[in-house]
Each structure stands twice: as C-alpha cells, then as structure tokens.
Design a protein around this nucleic acid. Structure first.
Length: 560
RNA sequence: UGGGGUGUCGUCAAGCGGUAAGACACAGGCCUUUGGAGCCUGCAUUCGGAGGUUCGAAUCCUCCCGCCCCAGCCA
C-alpha cells in the first residue's frame, strides 16, 4: 500500500522535509488533512488527502484528520461522516487521530486571553463597515481603531462578556494588535474572534464566540504537534500571521506552513460554493450524483480509488497555477480498469442478426474469459443461439476501408464465439434503415482461427436475443463547463449543458449481469467501462453508469 | 500605482552552472479474441522577453513583461 500511494518523485515539499530531518529541526513528521465539514470532498481535496497522507506514509509519520469547524454556518455531521467515508475509501487511515477544531475552543479561548494579557489583542467595537474603512486599501495604509488603546483590564472584561453572551452578533470582535500600516493586509489587526449565535453542529449553543481561521488553524496545528502544515497557495499571505500567533503563544517546536497550488481540472467545477449551489438548487441529485466531481460522485460513477491516487501522483505538486487536462484523470481510470475490470458483453443499440445455418432450437454455452490476460479471473458461460443482437454501430452498409467490423461481404468474429459471414440485410422500406441482418456461421471457428488461415474483418460483441437481460444504461457524463473553468462566472445554467444531461438507454446485457454486486465495474466490449449503480438498480434489471467517456458527446460539444 | 507568489512542449512536470527527463494529449504505423485495448515511431536546437557574467546559463546578475492571490466579523 505504501509504495502504491507514495509518489517516487521528489517535490519541493519533500525537499523541505528532507532538510528539516537532516538539520535535526524535526525527528518525526506529522501532517494533517483539515477540511471544513460544510460539503463533500471533491477531486481537489483528493489531491490534498493524497499529499498529506502520502507524505506521512513515506516518512513513517502521522497524518491527522481534523475537522476545521470554526464557522458553524453550513457545517454538519452529515459532512463529517461523508468526509471520513471518502478519505477511508481513498485508501487512507488516520487511526485514532480524528480531531475537531471545535474541541479546542476552550484552549483557544485561553490563548486569546494570553494574547490580551500580553497587550497583543484588543476588543474592537467598530462595525463591519467601519472596520473595512479603517483597514485601508491595497495601496493605502489603514488607520488604528479608536478602540485599539483599551486597557488590558477592559479588554479582559469585554472579552469574557462576549463569551458570556452579553452582546449582539457583530457588536464587538477581538482583534490582534499588529500593524495597521502593514503592506500585507492580513496583518492589519486581523479579527480573531467574532460573536455568532448560529448554533454549532457539535457544540450546540455552548459558544457564541468563534475563533477565526487564522487564529484557530495555526494553534490547532501546534496543539496536535503538526510539523508541516500543508495548505493551498491562497494562504501565502496568511503565513506571516500564522507565524505571528505561533511565535506569540507557542513554546517549543513550531509547525511550519507550506503552500502548494490547488488542482484545477479542465471542464470541471471545483468551487465548493458552486457545488453547494448545484446541490441546494437540486440541479443534481445530491452530492453523490455521478455527474459531480466529488469523491462520492466519482465512486458511484465507477472510478476507483487506486485510479484517483495514481492521478494525484501523476499531476505532481508545485506552486504554479495549473489547469490539468481531464483526459489524464480518465486515462488513469481506464488504465486501472483495463487491468482489473472483468469483461462483459452488452448491446446498447441492438441490431437483430439471424444466423441462417444455425439450428433453430440450439443453445450453446460459450466459455468466456473474464479477462483476456488474467486466467485467474476465471471464465463465465454465455448462451449463444440462432438469433442475436449486435451493436448498430458494428455494421455499416458501405463501410470505409479501415472499418474493422461487419458489412456486406465481410466476415467477423463474434467475440468468444464463432466467425460469421454477412449474407443479406432487411431494410425498412420507408426509412431505408437496416433493421435485420442475416449471416452464416463457420462451425469450425468456435474459439479457433479459421482453418484456412483467412483473416476476419474484426471482432464484435453480441448477446443472445432470447437470453439477454434488459438493463438501463445511463450515458450521462460528469458535470462540466463548456468554457475554461477559470473563466466561468455565469449563471448556474451555464454550468449545465447538454453533455451533462442524462441519456437513458434501454440496453440488453448478457444474462449473468442480471444481478451484479454493488459498485462492480465491467468493460462492455467495444463500448467502454460501466459501473453497476446499485443505488438505483433493481434485481434482474441493473442500472449501469458509463465510467469514462472522453470521446462522448461532451467532448464534441466542448470542441475537442 | 502596495504586498505576496509564479512563468520550461497543447496540458501537467523534472531540471538546482556542463549542454532540455517523464506523463497525458496529438500524429503516423502495426495488430484484429485486452480493441474506448496493446505495441512501435514522431513530437521544446530551446526554457516569458532583453541585456550581462562565464570556456559553458533554463539554472547566476540586471531590467522589462505576463498571470495568480490579498481590502469576509469565510476557510
């Protein structure tokens, strides 16, 4: 497992860690993955999960799972559960180190008091609007709050009364006393506590004041004795503040913040705000809708954890803004599935084929390898009879030169079965559409090459008409944006285009697929990879989701 | 016009003064019971630009340019 999840290449973070180990700054490595439980994890989070847990595994250190739940709005136990579930599914284990920032509220409160006593924090009674004005702009310095000079005693009194609930939301805040003229706006007396009467999903109404991210995060890291606190690039401006709190309040070894570039995926929405919007407006069927870029959605869609880990390993870790081609993710999924998915036959758009010289009532059981290169995956038996269905696309009346399938005068192999030769076709008189084919089979070609050495024109899949099981196949694709993700700022409807829509196909599959287990994945020969979606499946009529569809409609729509 | 980052193939990404890895994508070929697969081949005389240092620069210096982040009592 360790080798599997640990990239072999060295990135800048590993260099920092190697150096910290070499110089003796640390003798162990401790990281953490700190999501806020206000939504489901998506592929962007997966990058962070793989990085943090992967680093810990590589250095035989630890990685904590910490809920960064310092803002009660939007947080819930459902999300805590889904996050644990998804991290575990991705293949990582935090042992007994599941923590909550909310469990540190009392400690954090004491740290705030320490800061006040040191004269480094004060209660500010400016309104939000006033505070914004006092903060200055990007190019102009801010000015001191009129409350900046309050005595330590008064601050202590006010802060304890804030906690006691004596004030309304927004009436006061606690601020760090740093430098209102700092060119780094983050350092201009940042708010560290605010009054918020939204009940907390775990702490109920125990607290009415909540610490801000900048205050809580670095101190939570310190409490957990994290050595390397890895976060995304947008927190670079916050690092001086991270260090400021740690230096003011923590003795001994100090955690170090390291930033890396978050993942951007082509045609994919990875903004939590947007995803929440999609779910709340019911534009999708929940966080685990297979069209969603969430871990849960991808899982239901049939992606494997291994493929996602491989993807995260291949994209690398750097500080440059990036836009990774979704084709790489899909490649990783296909690569894993090609290796692991059992093969099965299905026909999405059936074309009836009658084998004229095959006995009327005969049924043969064809032994089919479940995997062409893995005999250990066993075989299955698939019934073959006089009337079969093949995929419409596998026949062309006037095929081009390179078409490797059936056509007039052609001979192809039915996969796992006989070689058949075209005899005649039946057309709908009105539309001219071919509705039925007649062929003849060569009895000597069952799992054997033609004796005379002639080459066939291709290999196609099939199902016996009398034995096939009806199935629902959903061809819908992942949610995606037509435009470059970085530039999409339009209405939500812009995010949903025809490629995102669900297309239901009433297909037929080989009988063995009538009852398939949860989340099983198959390669339907010549059609692609499908995952049985047990959430909507009924026994006897499975529902399959298409797994990788780079070449489907959306790609055309997107102009690829 | 403040501060913090970052610029190497279409997209990620190695490279850390000795003469541009790899992957995806793409193109061509082979194969025809892994076929939305496999195999083979091709794909940066050049590293945002211009100067400079050096026997030698993507790597060091100078200036310039582009892009991203920061003015939530969000994280």
């Amino acid at each position: 497992m360790t080798e599997e999840i640990t990239p072999t290449q060295t990135d800048f973070i590993r260099e920092i860690i190697d150096n910290d180990l070499k110089t003796g700054k640390h003798d162990r490595i401790a990281t953490r993955f700190p999501p806020e439980p206000n939504g489901y994890l998506h592929i962007g989070h997966a990058k962070s999960v793989c990085l943090n847990f992967g680093l810990a595994a590589q250095y035989r250190g630890t990685c904590n799972l910490r809920m960064d739940d310092t803002d009660p709005a939007g947080e819930s136990m459902e999300f805590v559960g889904s996050i644990q579930n998804d991290v575990r599914w991705l293949g990582f284990d935090w042992d007994d180190r599941l923590f909550y920032a909310s469990d540190y509220f009392e400690k954090l409160y004491q740290f705030a008091i320490d800061l006040i006593k040191a004269g480094k924090a004060y209660v500010c009674s400016l309104s939000a609007d006033e505070m914004r004005e006092y903060r200055g702009t990007l190019t102009e310095p801010g000015k001191d709050s009129p409350y900046r000079g309050r005595s330590i005693e008064e601050n202590l009194d006010l802060f304890s009364r804030m906690r006691a609930g004596e004030f309304k939301d927004g009436e006061h805040v606690l601020r760090a006393k740093i430098d209102m003229a700092s060119p780094n706006i983050t350092m201009r007396d940042p708010v560290i506590y605010r009054i918020k009467r939204t009940g907390h999903y775990r702490m109920a109404d125990t607290w009415v004041i909540y610490p801000m991210y900048d205050f809580a995060h670095c101190l939570s890291d310190s409490i957990e004795r994290i050595t390397h606190s890895i976060c995304t690039l947008e927190f670079e401006n916050n690092r001086p503040l991270y260090d400021w709190f740690v230096n003011e309040l923590i003795d001994g070894p100090k955690p170090r913040q390291i930033e890396f570039a978050r993942l951007n995926l082509s045609y994919t929405i990875l903004s939590k705000r947007r995803l929440i919007e999609l779910v709340e407006n019911k534009l999708v069927n929940g966080w685990d809708d297979p069209r969603m870029p969430t871990v849960a959605g991808m899982r239901r869609r049939g992606y494997t954890a291994r493929a996602i880990r491989e993807f995260c390993s291949r994209i690398g870790v750097a500080k440059k803004d990036n836009l990774v081609d979704i084709a790489l993710l899909e490649h990783c999924v296909r690569e894993d599935l090609n290796d692991s998915a059992p093969r099965a036959m299905a026909v999405l758009h059936p074309l009836k084929v009658v084998i004229d010289n095959y006995p009327e009532d005969r049924v043969e059981e064809m032994e089919c390898a479940n995997h062409p290169q893995k005999p250990e995956m066993g075989t299955r038996s698939v019934p073959f009879s006089k009337t079969i269905y093949i995929e419409k696309d596998d026949f062309m009346e006037n095929p081009p030169r390179k078409y490797k399938r059936l056509g007039p005068g052609r001979e192809i192999r039915l996969r796992n079965s006989y070689v058949i030769r075209f005899a005649s076709m039946v057309k709908d008189e009105a539309t001219g559409e071919v509705t039925e084919l007649h062929c003849t089979y060569d009895p000597d070609t069952k799992n054997a090459a033609p004796a005379d050495g002639r080459k066939v024109d291709g290999v196609i899949h099939w199902v016996s008409a009398a034995h096939a099981v009806p199935a629902t196949v959903r061809l819908y694709d992942r949610l995606f944006k037509v435009a470059d993700p970085a530039s999409v700022e339009g209405e939500m409807t812009d995010l949903l285009n025809p490629g995102s829509l669900e297309v239901i196909v009433n297909a037929c599959v080989e009988p063995g697929l009538g009852e398939v287990a949860a989340e099983e994945k198959y390669q339907f020969e010549r059609i692609g990879y499908f995952c049985c979606d047990t959430k909507d499946s009924a026994p006897g009529k499975p529902v399959f989701n298409r797994i990788v569809t780079l070449r489907d409609s959306w790609a055309k729509i997107a102009g690829k």
